[in-house]
Design a protein around this nucleic acid. Structure first.
Length: 652
RNA sequence: GGCAAGGUAGCUCAGCUGGUUAGAGCGCUGGUCUCAUAAGCCGGAGGUCGGGGAUUCGAGUUCCCCUCUUGCUACCA
């Protein structure tokens, strides 16, 4: 609902360590759509996007490429900006965290929080992941060393740091969540945040001395070795973009109507950010809206799989507006979405081509054939009041859906008037009416259809600006605030005009327009075993990758009983075992344990086996599984069930 | 392990505070008009509403148990 006169909409600022993918495009397109609607409806709108450019990771990436941090950031930042420009994203400001104004604003904020007693200096000791730029308690580390987020090695860092008194805001945050049921969307995410905060908040380390590429502390603190923690720097962009700490000239847009984000950065936005704002004495945003992920053909996207959706490629092949429509229509806000060319083509052919594009064509045909293109709405209400009422009742429901981020519902509802139009043509059969000499009725029907198309095009404009502009041109009107008021709010119809005969807006798409990535093709042909192989490849490339529990369960672990054991001839390490896994035949498993266990040792004992491993040949013997064992400097020992278990019992 | 949300037609989902024959879109299928992009319109098939139990005159809708999925979180590896 519009209760602010000003509407301020933000996307996250995108980290320049990555190139733009479908997720970035999705966030930005949602924001653009809301911004366009706000402007169209006459609200004073400010739409912000930009890039986040500081941090150790950037410093290192730049170094690795032999560039200065600034040059590297310039380069990647430009790729984002160019993409948004090519996508006709109507941002009012593209902020960069390397902007001087931003840096000044952040320093001002730091000072204010410091003066308010929310920042203190202490020593931080912890395991730090350079890649994630995050400290982790050792309890969270993998193997006491590796980052639980990215799997890379962490380093122990003991450094002087400034801390923000996040703990102080725990109750105030909870109060905010409770008093503002819609502060975090979707609501299920709000519950997660509440539970997390209820679990207790620790003060937040907000400066670093281990690298240099960041905003320095305010000079009056005279502590030049510190730079600000990237999240403090980054979050602050939402106010520095409005001039906070410098000219303040756009601060009247604050607080934000909505911060659009991906669900991965919810915690920063839903906990740290409001706490920072409280400390600064600024009002809190109305909504923090977290959307879900996109998969491709049901699979997670990753660079190593080579199945990342390139938004530019898709837009080029299928049309920018069509892509926008698909993204916004396909998935309920907050949920994960699946991108596939088939789904995209279905949307284009069915929703856009059949229901919308073809309707315009029908109107062009009828008006051309019967009235040489002229359309006059004078008598619409006389014959079609029922249809008008129905259409208006649908249109009346739309606006709230958009501002509640229910854009898929918004589009669904927006299609109902089109159905009314398509049905009316069949119901009243203008071709029959014309034969009966009822020209006024036919003209009125055309007026009705034209009116419906004009209204739908207006409301669809924020989602599909180019296409709707074309529709408007064909119907000789312009999409602007005045006409939005007239067609939507005042429920008027179009004036008399002569329709333009334009070619079909959505030519039918009969085949995939983009080549499918290899992995997707393989997926249908190969069994899960292959899938695991790919996972392994991924590991090698990225260090110890994190997996989901689902992936873990792809590994079949079973208790087995060794029913036969012998040495593999000419091998120093291998034993040849027959292990009963409760299957028809025992598995033959070749295990490299002879240095620690003799064949006799193993016979009759129970072991844990990876049962769905692709068979391998070792010294000429097929091995159909792998034994679990632990090895350190003192040797190797088997992992066994504590108590005897039936052969084949699964472990998990 | 804890918490949360879910399991409804082939697919994606809607079903508010319990009430007559459980809905939509897509897909499939039969029919039909001709203004139109093999589009439109009308009709049809298809669901023991995850399983079991309880409350009730009556439960997809409430309660309990089980099961599976997803998310967050803890801990172990």
């Amino acid at each position: 609902m519009s209760c602010h006169k000003n509407v301020y909409i933000t996307t996250p600022i995108y980290y320049v360590n990555d190139i733009a993918h479908i997720g970035h495009a999705y966030t930005t397109i949602i924001a653009d759509t809301i911004a366009r609607y706000s402007r169209m409806s006459g609200l004073d709108t400010f739409f912000l996007t930009g890039t986040d450019e500081h941090g150790q990771k950037i410093e290192e990436s730049a170094k690795a490429r032999g560039k200065s941090s600034q040059a590297y950031a310039d380069e990647i930042s430009a790729t984002f900006r160019n993409l948004w420009d090519d996508f006709h994203i109507t941002y009012d400001k593209f902020i960069r965290t390397t902007d001087e104004d931003h840096k000044k604003g952040v320093q001002k904020a730091f000072n204010t929080m410091y003066e308010n007693g929310d920042i203190y200096k202490d020593v931080y000791k912890g395991h730090y992941c350079i890649s994630c730029e995050t400290f982790f308690p050792k309890s969270q580390l993998v193997d006491d060393e590796f980052c639980p987020e990215c799997g890379k090695s962490t380093v122990i860092v003991e450094e002087e740091s400034y801390f923000f008194k996040l703990s102080k805001y725990q109750d105030k945050l909870l109060e905010w969540y409770n008093n503002n049921p819609e502060c975090i969307l979707p609501k299920s995410k709000r519950n997660e945040v509440i539970r997390f905060v209820e679990g207790g908040l620790e003060d937040l380390s907000i400066t670093r001395t281990s690298f240099d590429w960041g905003v320095k502390l305010p000079e009056n603190l005279n502590d030049p070795k510190h730079v600000m923690y990237v999240w403090l720097d980054a979050l602050m962009n939402y106010v520095t973009a409005l001039g906070y700490g410098t000219d303040e000239k756009n601060m009247h847009y604050w607080p934000a109507r909505v911060h659009l984000i991906g669900k991965d950065i919810l915690r920063f936005h839903a906990i740290y950010w409001p706490a920072f704002l409280m400390s600064l004495g600024l009002p809190l945003p109305k909504h923090i809206a977290a959307h879900g992920w996109w998969t491709r053909d049901g699979e997670k996207m990753s660079k190593s799989k080579g199945n990342v959706v390139n938004p530019r490629e898709v837009a080029d092949a299928y049309g920018l507006d069509n892509f926008r429509y698909f993204l916004l229509r396909e998935v309920p806000f907050g949920g994960d979405g699946d991108f596939s060319q088939k789904a995209l083509i279905d949307r284009i052919n069915s929703d856009l081509g059949n229901d919308l594009g073809n309707l315009l064509n029908r109107l062009i045909g009828m008006s051309d054939k019967y009235f040489e293109g002229k359309i006059d709405s004078t008598h619409v209400a006389k014959y079609y009041q029922t249809e008008l009422n129905e259409v208006e009742s649908y249109l009346d429901r739309l606006e709230p859906l958009l501002f509640e981020m229910q854009i898929h519902r918004y589009l669904e509802e927006l299609w109902r008037p089109l159905a009314v139009a398509n049905k009316s043509i069949d119901k009243y059969q203008p071709w029959t009416l014309i034969k009966e000499g009822k020209e006024e009725e036919v003209m009125a029907l055309n007026g009705l259809i034209a009116g419906i198309l004009a209204k739908v095009a207006t409301m669809l404009y924020p989602v599909m600006p180019e296409i709707c502009t074309k529709i408007a041109e064909a119907l000789h009107f312009e999409i602007n605030t005045e006409n939005w008021q007239k067609l939507i709010k005042d429920k008027k119809l179009l004036e008399t005009f002569t329709i333009e005969k334009i070619p079909p807006l959505f030519p039918r798409i009969e085949e995939l327009l983009l080549a499918q990535p290899q992995t997707v093709v393989q997926k249908t042909e190969e069994k899960p075993v292959k899938k695991e192989e790919k996972k392994n490849v991924e590991k090698k490339e990225e260090g110890i990758a994190l997996i989901g529990i689902d992936q873990f369960f792809q590994t079949s672990l079973k208790v087995g009983t060794v029913v036969a054991a012998e040495e593999v001839p000419k091998s120093a390490k291998l034993l040849l075992l027959q292990v009963d896994l409760g299957e028809e035949h025992p598995r033959q498993i070749v295990a490299g344990i002879k240095e620690w266990y003799s064949a006799q040792d193993m016979l009759g004992t129970q072991v844990c086996v990876v049962a769905n491993l692709k068979p391998a040949k070792l010294m000429g013997y097929t091995s159909e599984g792998m034994l679990l064992a632990a090895k350190d400097e003192n040797g190797l020992c088997m992992i066994r069930p504590e108590k005897p278990k039936k052969s084949g019992t699964s472990i998990g």
